[in-house]
Design a protein around this nucleic acid. Structure first.
Lengths: 219, 219
DNA sequence: ACGTTGAGATTGCCG
DNA sequence: CGGCAATGTCAACGT
């Protein structure tokens, strides 16, 4: 990565045209071939940029970046205040533990959020077509399979149905009903679920986090 | 702006949780109070960031950024390779000549989109109160002034009226009529324009681009 | 390759 | 202040 702080003006001509009058800015040249121009505001957003692949041509005090679509970014350097090149090496990768996993954790910790009297039997309860998010017993002791999604769409309902079909083969569980839990249940998914006798529960993630936090503070 | 290149690991806990194992990265601290962590790829996008307002607490080798929503970004510095602070001063501002300029270009290239038989006389035709976007001649050879906006609102109609007033003073052009072209003409603007004998034309930007592309492929 | 969809989206506008 | 739409949206995923 090369970091250049310079007094510069910038032109972008592409899907739109943009002009930046001369001022001191950071020019970030990454190993991936991209360039971005940052001011001291706008948080993480650059004023202008060019994504790879683009070719850089350097002539006198002007850097021009062009891509195959004919878009160009032209930086005219008036004065360079810093020019540092640093080898960063490869990025080991960003691990995102998304909302779905966290939702499962929270609902497993307190299944009564789904329904009064609900008790957890097991998280990731295995079937021969994959694990069910939660297996519970309701207030009457009947088995309930819970599928958890961040966004509840048709696919998720189908998935839950397949699990229910498998679980129903187990005499110790039968009859098993289903609950489809999501932060947001799409109308189409709700229709399908209801038609198949599956209850939909919309869970408020922030509220759930709040509840857990409250409970934790009690102890 | 402060630029730190360091071997570091990063944790983000907020709307989602994310973890970055130790590696060499750029940490950009802006004067606006924001922080962003960049790898040598992903073009202009940071791996993690925190937008202002957020408070930074520094303890030993750990920087923690927190905002009022309880989101936190934690950076643990293992080794610092570069630490440069640069005063950038204020950003004079980005000028975007977006869709409006492009619309003008496209309509100038083919004024028949506005009206059958229309021919371009000049783009940015000067008057003593500013340039008219397009000056044309219609099928009957009469002068037509065109004002182009992305969103057609009352101001734009007023602007066009002022131009018409000036142009009508020119014996070689008189009488000049007006066309108000926009991607979207607001009802109030349409009422005013119609009342003043100005025709409104809504132009489909994508269609226009498509047409031009089609025409270009013919040659 | 192309279309669809989500994003820690952000940003500006309108009601 | 809250909802809606545009963004040089970008990026991931499925067909």
């Amino acid at each position: 990565m090369r970091l250049v702080v310079a007094t510069c003006s910038v032109e972008y001509a592409g899907r739109l045209s943009a002009h930046l009058p001369s001022a001191v800015r950071l020019i970030m040249l990454k190993a991936d071939g991209s360039v971005s121009v940052h001011s001291d505001d706008r948080a993480y957003k650059p004023l202008n940029w060019m994504t790879p692949p683009c070719t850089m041509t350097e002539s006198d005090r002007t850097w021009t970046f062009a891509n195959s679509k004919g878009e160009t970014l032209t930086i005219t350097l008036d004065e360079v205040h810093l020019d540092a090149t640093q080898a960063l090496g490869s990025e080991p990768g960003l691990r995102k533990d998304g909302v779905e996993a966290h939702l499962q954790e929270l609902l497993a910790a307190d299944p009564t959020t789904l329904e009064d009297g609900m008790r957890l039997v097991k998280r990731e309860y295995p079937t021969d077509i994959g694990p069910v998010d939660l297996l519970c017993r309701d207030a009457d002791g009947r088995a309930v399979a819970v599928e958890i999604k961040r966004r509840g769409e048709i696919d998720g309902v189908e998935q839950l149905c397949r699990y229910l079909e498998r679980l129903d083969l187990d005499g110790r569980l039968r009859p098993v009903r289903g609950i489809f839990a999501a932060q947001l249940v799409k109308p189409q998914a709700r229709v399908l679920a209801t038609a198949r006798g599956i209850r939909c529960v919309e869970v408020d993630y922030d509220e759930l986090k709040g509840l857990r936090a409250d409970e934790l503070t009690l102890f």
